[in-house]
Amino acid sequence: MFGQLSHKLEVNVPASEAWEIYGTLGLSKLLVEDGSAFEKIEILEGDGGSGTILKKTFMPGSHGFTVHKEKFTKLDNEKRVKELEVIEGGYLDLGFTLFRVRFEIIEKDNDSCIIKSTMEYDVKEEAVANISYPNTDLVAKIAEVAKDYLIKNKATENAA
């Protein structure tokens, strides 16, 4: 059974600034510093580009699992799109055959953009009871952490 969920968040910074966080490993660093979703994020392979593999350890009790590995399968700096797929653990242990997240930074105007996060998943028929696990809570939290950081940095730059 295939499913898709999306979340959008408007941010009052240029799309290029938001992409500086999303298009690099900077987002992972922010998420660990924030401490609300991930206990630890390890880079197993790569430098943040396509093919990079991360091992993410979730905060205890935040999901139905504690660890998963994900691979960046697409990184398009021109279109500001990044895709990753869970390749081990996490949702795959719950009977999902695919769990993909796409982050898009969509330019609204010169001073604002939209962070669009889309999750696509496919679950085995015998594990269809787990279809309720995917939700937009985590991608919404990730977008909020990024937004807070970007707005704070913009305020600091304007004050300087």
Rank of each mutant, 00 (worst) to 15 (best):
Asn110Gln: 15
Arg100Met: 01
Glu126Ala: 07
Lys124His: 05
Ile105His: 03
Glu70Trp: 05
Thr118His: 08
Glu144Tyr: 11
Thr136Ser: 14
Tyr121Asn: 02
Lys79Asn: 15
Tyr91Glu: 12
Ile87Trp: 07
Arg100Gly: 01
Asp111Trp: 08
Leu75Val: 15
Asp109Lys: 13
Asp76Arg: 04
Ile105Phe: 01
Ile87Thr: 14
Tyr121Gly: 01
Arg100Val: 01
Asp93Leu: 04
Val128Ala: 15
Lys74Ile: 06
Ile142His: 08
Ser117His: 05
Ile105Lys: 02
Lys108Met: 14
Asn130Gly: 03
Leu84Tyr: 14
Ile131Phe: 04
Glu104Gly: 05
Asn110Arg: 15
Ile131Leu: 09
Asp93Asn: 13
Ala129Tyr: 10
Lys116His: 11
Glu88Phe: 03
Ala143Gln: 10
Lys116Glu: 14
Lys124Ser: 03
Thr118Asp: 06
Leu84Met: 13
Glu126Phe: 03
Thr118Pro: 00
Glu120Gly: 10
Arg80Pro: 01
Ser132Glu: 08
Glu107Met: 08
Lys141Pro: 02
Lys108Val: 14
Ala140Tyr: 10
Lys82Gly: 03
Val86Asn: 00
Lys74Thr: 07
Leu138Ser: 11
Val123Pro: 00
Asn130Lys: 05
Leu94Met: 11
Asn110His: 15
Asn110Ser: 15
Val128Gln: 15
Ser117Glu: 07
Lys71Asp: 00
Lys108Trp: 12
Lys71Ile: 03
Val101Arg: 03
Leu84Val: 10
Lys71Arg: 13
Lys124Phe: 01
Pro134Asp: 05
Ser132Cys: 10
Glu78Cys: 02
Thr73Val: 14
Pro134Ser: 07
Val86Cys: 06
Gly90Ile: 03
Val145Leu: 09
Tyr133Val: 11
Gly90Glu: 02
Lys71Thr: 03
Asn130Cys: 04
Glu120Asn: 12
Glu144Asn: 12
Ala129Gln: 14
Asp111Gly: 11
Ile115Arg: 00
Arg102Met: 15
Ser117Pro: 04
Arg102Ala: 13
Leu94Glu: 09
Glu85Met: 09
Ala140Gly: 15
Met119Leu: 13
